[in-house]
């Protein structure tokens, strides 16, 4: 039985037994290669669930939708390892109770989809631990290294060119499971920290603020990058920040549901070589 079939059966059991009130998974998209989020609350609909190598979106962001978990009923969700890490962070930041989340874990390598064993976040700690140990993914590393080698002026010009494309649609924010603030800093206007117009300065500021708020929290699921309508390589900035917190504070975001947020904790012997 394929993993798709297995998970359909499991979803049917959970829904008909009343163990979960909803299953968040993937359904067919507008084209053959696209998948869209699917929200199922009736056992008759499980046949609409799809699970293949095109299921790349991190669905964990839907869990913090207003009111979804407030009735203390359980919700099942299809998650890749990044998604499981995101649930850990949301639990660590008191945005949800991890007990309410039933996980349908899966991972994709090439075109092969394999199931990850477990129901609750704690059971995936080995999987997450092995990602931390594993080498960073090779994709896009070339561009990343190119940027690292640039002088500050060249880097500034590179990002100026990239951010010039930004239309301030905030799709990166909407797609991100970590951007759950009821009132985002760019929506506040007293004081107005970030220029709202989509000129280069405002775009610079917005992207700096976004990256800073995600540092030590980003799980590099790539939702922002895929959501960007003008293809700004946002993942590179997020990756640089993840690298920084890992190197400086040995912090790998989403290791457990009790992990302290990196910027809300400290050690007395943190590095301070740059402070005069």
């Amino acid at each position: 039985m394929s993993i798709e079939e297995q998970y359909r059966t499991r979803a049917k059991e959970l829904l008909s037994g009343g163990a979960v009130k909803m299953v968040i998974g993937y359904g067919k998209g507008t084209t053959a290669s696209r998948r869209r989020p699917l929200f199922i609350s009736s056992p008759d609909d499980v046949e609409r669930l799809v699970l293949d190598d095109a299921c790349i979106t991190n669905l964990s962001g839907y869990l913090v939708s207003e009111g979804l978990l407030s009735d203390e009923k359980r919700v099942a969700v299809f998650l890749r390892p990044e998604g499981i890490r995101a649930v850990n962070i949301l639990a660590a930041e008191s945005q949800l109770d991890a007990e309410q989340i039933v996980i349908f874990g899966f991972d994709v390598s090439g075109t092969e989809v394999r199931a990850l064993k477990g129901i609750h976040v704690e059971e995936f700690s080995d999987v997450i631990g092995s990602i931390k140990e594993g080498a960073p993914e090779a994709s896009e590393e070339e561009l990343f290294e190119k940027i690292e080698k640039m002088s500050p002026q060249e880097r500034f010009s590179f990002w100026q060119e990239e951010f010039a494309k930004c239309i301030k649609c905030y799709a990166c924010r909407q797609a991100c499971p970590m951007c759950y603030c009821r009132r985002c800093i760019v929506d506040s206007n007293q004081p107005q920290w970030v220029n709202t117009s989509s000129h280069s300065l405002g775009n610079f500021e917005w992207n700096i603020v976004r990256a800073f708020h995600l540092s030590g929290r980003c799980v590099e699921c790539g939702n922002c990058d895929r959501a960007c309508p003008v293809n700004i390589p946002l993942r590179l900035i997020n990756h640089r920040m993840a690298e920084e917190v890992l190197g400086a504070f040995d912090h790998f975001a989403g290791m457990s549901k009790t992990q302290e947020p990196v910027l809300a904790s400290f050690k007395k012997d943190d590095s301070e070589t740059f402070i005069l």
């Binding site: 940027i147 640039m150 500050p152 002026q153 060249e154 880097r155 500034f156 010009s157 590179f158 990002w159 100026q160 610079f204 992207n207 700096i208 990256a211 800073f212 540092s215 030590g216 900035i237 640089r240 920040m241 920084e244 917190v245 400086a248 504070f249 990196v262 910027l263 809300a264 904790s265 400290f266 050690k267 007395k268 943190d270 590095s271 301070e272 740059f274 402070i275």
Partner: peptide, 24 residues
């Protein structure tokens, strides 16, 4: 411990500014 928190924040922010091209 306000300055301990600040120190971590600066460490990360400094790396971010550097990566964006604002000279440290």
């Amino acid at each position: 411990h306000g300055n301990y928190h600040a120190r971590r924040r600066w460490m990360v922010f400094r790396a971010l500014l550097d990566f964006i091209g604002i000279p440290p």
